[in-house]
Design a protein around this nucleic acid. Structure first.
Lengths: 134, 134
DNA sequence: CATCTTATTGCAACAAATTTGCAATAAGAT
DNA sequence: ATCTTATTGCAAATTTGTTGCAATAAGATG
């Protein structure tokens, strides 16, 4: 998997540097999406500035995507690394549940088609109380 | 409708001040959701600070809700003032299309129920190219 | 393996966005 | 018309994000 990273970067002709490795591993080891400030905390070896630059790079290179979670922008690995999914977000305990729903995807493409839209990306989130909190 | 505003505020026991009136009217007169900086520009009478405070209040009071649009946080009046809808967002021309889809709502409640979630709110956006841009 | 080239880093300085404290003001109650 | 107190405007502080540049280290080359 360290292996995997190397070939990924080689393929994209990007240098595999310390901050890039650190940021990628931080993202990979987190079960939930991370905000920039969380990411900066999780990457103590790298300068703040480098984390910003790295995450920008990762977004451009389609390694990481931006997801809006509970009204904040967060980052998570793209579908290349993690199966496409959406989130249920508990507003009480803050927990996130990953969901994989065929129906959501169907609605997305139906709505896009009906409106003559060529979809590149979509966002879906449900907020509320989870089983335990309600 | 100015009438409407007054009774709304009276009901919530909030003072109807100049910044609150200005922010509300700005939101109401805009067809698309607004970012804070757009809102500040649209509210020249009120201090920047007051716009921040007002929008926070409006969110707390469920007058305004936050919507993620094209990776930015924007604000728009809640369903109390504008029929519930979602957005198609063109990444080329920046245009927004409002959509009212029964199917989306169905999927939302199905998914929530299946996961023992009691839904309070949800987010849905499709990004891509609109009819004209593709 | 040593050397070379050049992308990337760290740091410091800057700029922008957001928050806070507080005295002055003005809503709305009496 | 007066009083009480929430809210405002303003200035200062803080936090968040950006930029320029010299030093460094990836990875290419011989």
């Amino acid at each position: 998997m360290e292996r995997e990273l190397e070939s990924l970067f080689a393929q994209k002709k990007l240098r595999l540097t310390t901050p890039r490795r650190e940021v990628f591993l931080a993202m990979q080891s987190s079960k939930a999406p991370l905000s920039i400030s969380e990411l900066i905390k999780k990457c103590p070896i790298s300068e703040r500035t480098s984390v910003y630059r790295t995450i920008d790079l990762f977004v451009r290179e389609n390694i990481v995507k931006i997801v809006p979670i509970g009204w904040k922008q967060k980052y998570e690995l793209t579908d290349l690394f993690k199966k496409h999914h959406h989130h249920l977000s508990c507003t009480k305990c803050g927990n996130l549940i990953d969901i994989h729903s065929k129906n959501i995807e169907t609605v997305v493409s139906d709505v896009a088609r009906e409106n003559g839209f060529s979809e590149t990306d979509h966002t879906f989130e449900i907020r509320g109380l989870c089983r335990d909190c309600k």
